[in-house]
Design a binder for these strands. Sequence first.
DNA 1: CGTCGGGTTGATAACTTTCAAATTTCGTGG
DNA 2: CCACGAAATTTGAAAGTTATCAACCCGACG
Lengths: 249, 249
Amino acid sequence: MQSPPAPSSQHSPFARKLGALVALSSTELEALDKLHGHRRVFSAGHEMVHQGQMDQSAYILASGWVCSYKLLSNGARQIVDFQIPGDFLGLRSLLFRTADHNIEPITAVEASEVLASTLLGIFNIAPRLATAVLWAASRDEAMVVEHLVGIGRRDAKERLAHFLLELGARLKLVGLGSSEGYACPLSQYMLADALGLSAVHVNRVLRELREDGLVTFQHGQVTFHDLQALVCLADFDKAYLDHDGPLMK
Amino acid sequence: MQSPPAPSSQHSPFARKLGALVALSSTELEALDKLHGHRRVFSAGHEMVHQGQMDQSAYILASGWVCSYKLLSNGARQIVDFQIPGDFLGLRSLLFRTADHNIEPITAVEASEVLASTLLGIFNIAPRLATAVLWAASRDEAMVVEHLVGIGRRDAKERLAHFLLELGARLKLVGLGSSEGYACPLSQYMLADALGLSAVHVNRVLRELREDGLVTFQHGQVTFHDLQALVCLADFDKAYLDHDGPLMK
DNA sequence: CGTCGGGTTGATAACTTTCAAATTTCGTGG
DNA sequence: CCACGAAATTTGAAAGTTATCAACCCGACG
């Protein structure tokens, strides 16, 4: 969509992402590379961060899928977002003293741990990176907002269509998907908890979408059969996902 | 809840808010005061920012209520958040080149306009303020997340109860409410668009809450009749709204 | 093999919306 | 100060969407 000036493929996907928002100097790029210190591995189902835990780290996802969710006292779960490779996760857990949500790997995961002290230290060395991270956080917030709009004002079919499209667009940005489709390790239960629906209903709606010849969600694979019609049904506009290049020189 | 060290009442409510997150030096406080340059007045119903507009300013609300919302192509509206005095609004519209949502005053409003150049300039002079604003933005995101959870996994009654409590807690923080209740200029239509319900249903649920002796929402006044029972019904935890004092010295 | 989690389907119940209409509130001009 | 019209609130009835419950199927895995 655009060509960020500095950060090239030799830098981390995360640096590339920030570089698309704020033009970064080589000093700043070096500072960013420091973030990728402690590479850690997690396996599916073993929580990385638990609601209420204190002094948590953040992570930059290198491979695998993760989900962030909250649990209610009635036992219900709301998944707030899924993270895919290249995503920064747990910023709020790091910034606030205590984590306000859970983070759990969906697949096996590799991630770089980012300590609070490291991140704040980097903001000292390269202050403009704080602005860059603010930008990135705002983009994440825009995603949550879109998610909110979907749950609040779209019916199940539109909502599911929108979700599959958004995920596709995000995966495409990091080279894990195309306009044909993408590999997707999510279960229908997870879709349900993300979309505020029951798993049974997700299943039915998925069938409708399939029978309409729009998308297919099977065997861990999402396939778009009629992308344009799907975009139209979902009223999907990917503007909030990618941007027009560095806004700050 | 806590006593922020530096910023006292002589500074703006916004400075006080940031001061609760990051200890601010006097230089930084002065820089913040620069934000309150152009005081502007808006009247109810006249949009401040429109979805798609470019190069918008942000605002710091001095008085009045504002709402941020998105419109869907099917005509539905989802209110993402209400802003009350002391709130910063339109950060995303400023950070991204083009606004991704509408902002509209609910009552007559006074606000200080913050130009993009001013804000970024201040980050240059006082880099730690960027971190402080990142903190503030994360707190806002936490609110949106809580909102998302409510719409996704709470039924109408819990959702409404939670909403009224959250609003009350926020107003209390800026001295506009107490545990008795607060003045509230919102219509039932606005509640509906915020909570993902129909106005008719909001009305019915409001009646139930009233008949249960929990809260009353009438004549522009919210009154808590049984706060504890309401908190229990809504599973309300205000942890995400206030914080434990400066996390960064 | 037998179990277990995920997917699928039908039947029924619950919650919420929509439509329609009556009632009340409130600002404005006479 | 009252009358009027617009907007907001309220209520009932019917329709629609989604959840819940229950059962069955299937493939992975120990």
